[in-house]
Write a protein that binds this DNA or RNA. Structure first.
Lengths: 188, 188, 188, 188
DNA sequence: AATGAATGAGAATTCATTCAT
DNA sequence: AATGAATGAATTCTCATTCAT
């Protein structure tokens, strides 16, 4: 990807996190990226396209981060813990500003079929985890979407509160939260 | 509250849900509410104030809905189930358009101390539930913010997927999800 | 018609005549008309609509001017001469700046059926002249469009040259031109 | 003339006819001509110069077309008829797109003295026709500009209506129009 | 209290022109 | 000579806000 295009995407993400969804103008993006306003339109059709592409860009980054240090031959609970913490770290370490401000969900998305297949592939390690857990009888027999909402999304939710300063999570609480997330999806 | 003020708030919520955060102008609000543009400024200082007040307005509505049919002398699990379903129903029955579109979080908020106290009071029944659960040794000894993130927020998360059409939750899955949310916070 | 709307149309006509079709911006129109840029959009949907309405406005003016001092009971040649001179005077007296610069034809037109009927009605006196002339056997038996192209449009053509300074027409030449236009359409 | 220069002029004419005066950008011209945007500036100083040169280019083409198959030893009326039809054919056969759309007149012109002399020379056959006609007593004793406005310009005028679809001219009407144009300028 | 015409700054986008390659 | 990425001023149009009525 061209250097300028990367800088524009990066600038957009930074500004969106800082100023929220409204209040980010193309001029601001241009200035932050250090390019002329017109230059943005060489790489993106219009503002909508810029936001769409930013969505895809971030999603790829997120999928990559979540899968970090996870291999399919690790024990289930170890894999789960690693992914849970990957999400937590990503959201709390400010390297994904849009995620931890809850602004990512509001980016306009392309709802195409290819897009969905792509997303599925990107989060393959999560699917694998849930499928294996269910096959082994360890996890509840629920669809992956539900398992995810019960166990991984609380990580984002907590991280957001942590970042916003609404509530500070300490190390013990963090471990307990991971355990509780695990409790939510395993058979008892 | 004056009739016109109510109509303005109602119109704003409807339009926000429909057109997203950008694309709602004061002219549009005025038209939808059936008042003149200038009239809005009799009830709200500026656009920001309108959105702030809308935030408070919706939050009050939400707090009210969540607590519906919940009294402090009901058994813990019954109370939990009722609140979980109150959230689910509110989000899926389209009577809180901003919530189920995930746009509520993006409303500008006042981060004052009074605001926080007020919110605490509004969600008193939730706090009471968690406190009693912990006191009785049934719940894990975690802060309410964490318990909420583990058990109630998945309800919103699922409802959103359900509404968006990303994933349809059937009745059995719903019951299982409630049970799993409960599993997340109780001691094992 | 509102005073502001009139001023905007007037300003647009003046500027178009002066700067040609390109080089007239909405800002310029606003400044010339003494209104704010946004005000134009209260009266006209967009720039296209402004130009369309200007077209209609001018056409009405032209139709009115052409028919001045013409009544259907005047002798044919007298009517013809009056209309020919009405055109000439309008174009040379600078009160129809767009006409005499040949910019009028380039205004975007609405090609609707109603528009055509309206135009027909506006130029009724011209039609009547040609029809009577043909019925009496004085004029050649040609369609009005052709008769007009042969006899009245040369008036505009000459006026344009006169205004542009390409060629100055004196009074004798003017009378001769009217006579020649007449010769073009009568039987010999 | 260089091949690229020709292609640029050709592309400009095509685009102007299609998109009108606004709506033709240098980028579009470059693309249509199959050259890079910067290349245009090797052959033309700026956009204005491009349009000026296009004007001259077209005028030369027109002058050439009008004089086709006309030699000074042909009988007057035959010469007149040939030129009248040359104009008609050129305008109706789409090989002079700017003429028959009435956009040619709006091209910016250089109003220099040399330009005028050049134009005079280019239309020498027209001048000769009129001068001979007047010398022989056949034509009215009017300046060439007037004779032209009375007899040849109606051809363009009619052709434009024909092309625009405002009015379709059939073969009989065409002959009659030529005859009427002739009637306009001969002595009676 | 209520209106809605008017404002003008600011938004997205285009485009003539330049210049390093 | 030719390229085409880059520029940034200018364009059309919107919109929060004001104010005379």
């Amino acid at each position: 990807m061209s250097d300028k295009k990367k800088r524009i995407l990066q600038a957009t993400e930074t500004l969106l996190a800082e100023h929220g969804f409204h209040g980010v103008s193309m001029q601001m993006v241009a200035k932050e990226a250090g390019v002329a306003a017109g230059t943005i339109y060489r790489y993106f059709e219009d503002k909508d396209d810029l936001l769409h592409q930013l969505h895809d860009h971030i999603l790829a980054h997120v999928a990559n981060k979540i899968s970090q240090n996870v291999s399919d031959d690790m024990p289930l609970q170890h894999r789960f813990r690693t992914m849970w913490l990957n999400i937590w770290n990503m959201a709390t370490q400010e390297d994904a500003p849009l995620i931890n401000r809850g602004q990512f969900e509001n980016l306009p998305r392309r709802e195409s079929h290819e897009q969905k297949l792509l997303e599925k592939k990107m989060f393959a390690k999560v699917s694998t985890l849930f499928e294996e857990g269910k096959a082994s009888g360890l996890f509840k027999n629920l669809d992956n979407e539900i398992l995810s909402a019960l166990s991984l999304e609380p990580s984002i939710c907590l991280a957001r509160k942590h970042i916003n300063g609404v509530y500070k999570v300490n190390d013990d609480a963090l471990e307990a939260a991971i355990q509780a997330s695990w409790d939510a999806i395993i058979q008892h």
